[in-house]
Design a protein around this nucleic acid. Structure first.
Lengths: 294, 294
DNA sequence: CGAATGTTTGATACGTTTCAATCTCTGTGG
DNA sequence: CCACAGAGATTGAAACGTATCAAACATTCG
């Protein structure tokens, strides 16, 4: 397993905690992370209409103009977060459910002996803070893999949303279900598959998810995934991930050049890994697609 | 890993599919499971007021009398399900989000080479079908560990709920978040902990969850968990789980007699496993506890 | 240029799986 | 009432996948 002598997750004493991101900052246990959020609000003007959140919820129902407005009001401040920075730190309290506009993040946890496990990846349009920020103390940390743009949705506005737009609230619920389904698949992946299937499965899931949001070609995507990140996501050691890549490369299945992952044979790889992307597909909400606003 | 030559998950051709549980029954891939649901509706009268669902949502907000009624209307038919029977079968379509009234269930999946991975355990009051039934095809199977009682909540009533009771809908959303948090912890557990920590962590989580719903004493609980079930939940082999139990027993930490799990030293075991149950705690919904019905 | 980050490879150690066998218990049919 | 089959627990021996340790290499960057 990676991180025997912690390397990435350098323990830094939280110093400059902004009241914008953190509410009632407090630490319940030693927090191991690269740092704390240093938000840089970009603008407070209403966000433009075509945000990634619109697009991700728009895949679940057709948004009315009123709903587009409502979603805009939901999103308050926008922050720019730099690569390797933490948006959410394990153990702190938050009062916002953040949305990722741009960039890629990871949800992760560190065990008591310093090993990191990445729970999953956050892509544009995803609700960063689900379920992490919905507890007294954030249940894991969230760190950026790239420079990113994040929008805060205060929890009281989420609360309002349930009164003011049942449709959007329900869409959010189904969106959460889709997220949860990915966790389930991840558990199966880590629990019952050998290393090369795990790697293949993870990369295929990312390929599909990125394709849905237009961030991947049919056979490739580009992300700054180090082998250590992949190892920590799959419960493997960096060394073994490296050897696994070699096997996949030599088998003519996958090429990694720089930050670009090129799938030589998606079909074969899917068969190899037992990958079935239907859990990523658009979910049909009964009675909701009919655009039955009132 | 368990289930090299499949033993439990005997492949049975789905035969007697009841239109009550399954809507548009269809199979997208070879379904490996012990059987299909054979629902036995108990009564269609409105369920008594103090159901496990009331209690689990009641931990998130104080229910008004009107809300109690609404929850009763939500729950339509009640079924009795026998031990080892599947309530939900991977790949089928469902139009209900079931609630577990009584008994214990597992959500599981079978890989293409026949290994079973249990995603998690379902306890009374939990939403069985989240997120499993919220897809075109159920993303995993759900099987009973004990004889059980299950109530169907048709998805269109869930849909109605979002219009008729924002508070209950929101409670359901937060309940879903709590479920998801357990998946996250499970991933960390499987991905980055050695066998004996995994076993300890899993059993501690169950102890806490069962205590919350009054099904465990401070130091023990009783469930028909075979070593194979535990192995499949943790991504281990049965043999190794057995040896791990021995170590825990010899270490004076845990005793298993028949179906009763006795924790000799909860504190020590928690420290050993790095267990912190705060992700199981009651979550405070901003602005919701004030019982602000309108 | 040197420090830091990430990749790659080899040698070795170890945790866990697999295979195989025994043992206990429980329910069941003769 | 006993014999027997099946499920589950238990133990040993050997094989295997993966981790760990260590070192070299490539790249980037101040």
């Amino acid at each position: 397993m990676a991180r025997p002598h912690v390397r990435h997750a350098v323990a830094i004493q939280p110093v400059d905690i902004s009241p914008l991101l953190l509410s009632q900052p407090r630490r319940t246990r030693p927090v191991t992370s690269r740092g704390v959020p240093l938000p840089q609000p970009v603008n407070d003007e209403r966000v433009a209409s075509a945000t990634p959140l619109h697009r991700s919820l728009g895949r679940l129902l057709s948004l009315t103009p009123a709903e587009v407005l409502l979603l805009n009001n939901l999103q308050k401040t926008r922050y720019r977060v730099r690569r390797d920075q933490d948006v959410v730190v394990h153990g702190y309290k938050y009062d916002s459910l953040f949305v990722l506009n741009d960039g890629v993040a990871i949800r992760y946890n560190v065990t008591h002996d310093g090993r990191r496990q990445i729970a999953n990846f956050v892509l544009p349009g995803d609700l960063i803070g689900f379920p992490v920020c919905l507890f007294e103390n954030a249940i894991c940390s969230i760190s950026m893999l790239t420079d990113a743009s994040v929008t805060a949705i205060p929890l009281e506005r989420v609360h309002m949303l349930f009164r003011e737009s049942p449709r959007l609230a329900e869409a959010m619920f189904w969106q959460a279900a889709r997220e949860t389904a990915m966790y389930v698949e991840h558990i199966v992946n880590i629990g019952r598959r050998p290393a090369y299937e795990r790697v293949a499965h993870l990369l295929l899931e990312l390929l599909h998810r990125l394709q849905i949001i237009g961030m991947a070609t049919p056979r490739s995507f580009e992300l700054p995934l180090t082998q250590e990140v992949i190892a920590d996501a799959l419960g493997l050691s960096v060394v073994h991930v490296n050897r696994t890549f070699r096997r996949l490369r030599e088998g003519g299945l996958l090429n990694v050049e720089d930050g670009r992952f090129v799938f030589m044979d998606v079909e074969a790889l899917s068969r190899l890994a037992g990958f079935d992307g239907s859990y990523l597909a658009r979910v049909p909400i009964p009675g909701l697609f009919a655009l039955d606003m009132h």
